[in-house]
Amino acid sequence: MADATNQGNAPVDPVTGFWRDMWARYAAAAGSMPGMGAAGGATGDSPFGQGAFFSPDAMRRMQNSYFEAMAKYAEDYMKTPQFLESMKRSMDQALAFRQQMDGFLKSNMASAFEAASGGANTEVLGAIRQLSARIDERLTNLEARLSALEGAAGLENAAAPAKPGKRAAKH
């Protein structure tokens, strides 16, 4: 018993830990079944007791125990530095591959076929977007100046009731 306690407290590697935990859960699930464990043994029959050790319910409990143990260890593993490091490495490789592919398609394929590449499209779209942002900014400034001029000319009262958009602009 003392050995078992010591073993229970000793640090274990994740794989051993997983199997130990899973078996503990199995055992707990089996022990909680009606007619199992000492109750079965008390009748002197068998380790399979009065209850149904192979019943669907029993199997489901065992299965759930396995899933619970797996879920716990998967989550623990995904927080380890080893996993995070490997995640970073594989992501870096995937990004490098994608960049190489994009570069190849942009420089070689696009010019060979005299076609626009995805990268070129993105650049054009980016330029259009910047232009649109600048126009938007200019219009906003013009709107503000117009409002100021209207206010100065005393036209504000004569204007129609403010639309929600106008109210919304005051923040």
């Binding site: 018993m1 078992a4 503990a24 707990a28 464990g37 043994g41 008390a42 380790p47």
Partner: peptide, 10 residues
């Protein structure tokens, strides 16, 4: 045998 987990059978 010093099993580190509970054993349900008698």
């Amino acid at each position: 045998f010093g099993f580190p987990f509970p054993f349900p059978f008698p």
